[in-house]
Simulated assay, not measured.
Amino acid sequence: MTGLALLVAGGRGQLGRDLAVLADAAPEVGFAHAPGSGELDVTDREAVADAVAVLAAAARDAGLRPVVVNASAYTAVDAAESDVERAFQVNSDGPRLLATTCAAQGVPLLHVSTDYVFPGDGDRPYEPEDPTGPQSVYGRSKLAGEREVLRGCERGWVVRTAWVYGAHGANFVKTMCRLERERETLAVVDDQRGTPTWSADLAAGLLELARAVAVGRGPAARVLHCTNAGDTTWFGLARAVFEELGADVTRVRPCTTADFPRTAPRPAYSVLSGAAWRDAGLTPLRPWREALTAAFAAGAFA
């Protein structure tokens, strides 16, 4: 098996940390660098150029195949509505710089995107080629970043995911764990449907894809979806978290989006189809409920 050299932009975030841990333990990864935004600002042209050049040189010297994974993102969905410039800098300009630099160095690029690029009015899982139509600044900035990657790097792939949670950073599952301790009851939205995705499972999927693209066996489809399988609502996920905690699930009560207004609109339906991922010969991720149990068993929320 050909060894890998990885650069993970956004390496101190929720997904980036899991990918870094997985890469460090993988025997086929000979070099892995996962800088946070303080070390590698993807909007800084010189910093991006230097980081990719170092990766390419390290790979060349060690006889490894280099791959860049962009896990950096501006993810404050509500804040983006009034912080438009910064959201587009990180989510669009950053991917553009990575794409053009990777293309110049001959390095494949995997770019992580989101279900929020879709309008959310569907009734079946979205395929990668379905029409997009983001309803928020966050979604529009992420779609712009996708286009920059596909336009700027011939060996660039976009991997959309959804409802990511994990041991690091803020996320819905962590919030539910905290609220279970703090509140007798809580209301959770039951009219938004998607797929919870454990960041550790997503990281494993990205590493499998990195292996493929490194040796020139990257999928013909350059936009893929990678989530855990199945779907639920935020209410369903909250009750599942309470189950894992051994708490009374009836303490979680359903409400509507209208009952819980947010600054940025959320898609009512954003389930992503994994068909293209499977068709590319990549391993489908396990069902979301099974993954949640595994995350708790692994101590992700201890």
Rank of each mutant, 00 (worst) to 15 (best):
L6M: 07
L7Y: 07
G11K: 02
R12C: 13
R12N: 14
G13N: 04
Q14C: 15
R17W: 03
R17C: 13
A20R: 10
L22F: 01
A25C: 04
A26E: 14
E28A: 12
P35L: 09
E39R: 15
L40T: 06
V42Q: 07
V42M: 01
V42Y: 00
E46K: 13
A47Q: 03
V48I: 06
V54C: 09
A56T: 14
A57M: 11
G63I: 12
R65G: 08
R65Y: 00
V67M: 01
N70V: 05
V77D: 02
A80E: 02
A80L: 06
S82E: 15
E85C: 12
E85W: 09
R86I: 08
R86Y: 07
D93M: 07
R96Y: 03
T100V: 15
T101H: 00
C102H: 02
L109R: 03
V112N: 04
F118P: 09
P119R: 12
D123H: 15
P125V: 11
P128E: 04
T132F: 00
S136T: 14
S136G: 10
L143Y: 02
G145C: 07
V149P: 07
G152I: 14
G156P: 12
W157F: 11
T161K: 04
V164T: 14
A167R: 15
G169P: 12
F172S: 02
V173W: 04
K174N: 13
C177T: 15
E182V: 07
L186S: 01
V189R: 12
T197G: 06
T197I: 06
A200R: 15
A204T: 14
A204P: 07
G205K: 00
G205N: 03
L206Q: 05
L206A: 02
R211C: 13
V213Q: 01
V215S: 11
V223K: 01
H225E: 04
T227Y: 05
A229Y: 04
G230F: 09
F235W: 14
A238W: 03
A238C: 05
A238Y: 08
F242E: 00
F242I: 06
E244L: 14
L245M: 10
G246I: 11
G246L: 12
A247F: 09
V249Y: 01
R253F: 01
A258P: 08
A258S: 12
F260K: 12
T263S: 08
T263M: 08
T263K: 04
A264Q: 07
R266T: 08
P267V: 07
A268S: 15
A275K: 13
R278E: 15
P284L: 09
P287Q: 08
R289P: 06
L292Q: 10
A294F: 00
A295Y: 04
F296M: 00
A297P: 06
G299P: 14
G299K: 13
A300L: 01
A302F: 01
